[in-house]
Design a protein around this nucleic acid. Sequence first.
DNA 1: AGTTATGCCTAAAATTCTTAGGTAAATATT
DNA 2: AATATTTACCTAAGAATTTTAGGCATAACT
Lengths: 112, 112
Amino acid sequence: MASPELLRGTLVTILLNLLAENGRMYGYEMVQSVRERSNGAFELTEGAIYPALHKLEADGLVLTERVVVGKRERKYYSLTPSGSEASVNKVSEFKEYVQAMALLLNPINLAK
Amino acid sequence: MASPELLRGTLVTILLNLLAENGRMYGYEMVQSVRERSNGAFELTEGAIYPALHKLEADGLVLTERVVVGKRERKYYSLTPSGSEASVNKVSEFKEYVQAMALLLNPINLAK
DNA sequence: AGTTATGCCTAAAATTCTTAGGTAAATATT
DNA sequence: AATATTTACCTAAGAATTTTAGGCATAACT
């Protein structure tokens, strides 16, 4: 259960990257996927991801399609071309950020 | 330069760690120090750090002493015992966070 | 029949940060 | 000598993002 507040600013990176990897996902699925793949470290909340996904759609980075499964509807998200670009950019920004943080944090602590 | 929005949630970690390393610093000095040590990647803003430092003081994690240099005053911050604890905790939380992110982000991208 | 899981959503409040200032002294520049 | 830049502190309005706390409905499990 590490660091809920560190997710701040990383949520969009995670969402875009999930879609880049999986091609097509729906919101609920993203929550499950992140929980499993992070070994429970990250627990996305629906109150956070749905507004974030809607903003990505408004910004033209993702598009949606509604698919009826049984009698319920899923809303699948997938990347647009600019979304794919943004995904790559976000991930490399994150890497730069981690490298810069490594310069700042105590080397002794980092070695541990 | 890189990733201003990623600093969200990391500012306190950076500040506490700076103090853990340097013992005693003043606000303006922290801004310079972070700029230099991150090779310009991180540019802390005073509008962000002063409220953050004041909150740390209110929470008992840092204490302050005013030192007159010439005719101007500097306000030095240093860690209290709970501040030292918090510093260690924040840094290890950050490391866990980075490890969890590594699990999530595309291995192909990470290899680049 | 009732609880849990699936699946979407929103809105108020809290938190954190940016932006855009203000104040004042010291130093550098023209 | 006047001006600009750097040093050094600060605040407050607004933006952005997230938490909290719900609502709604179907499906599956007990």
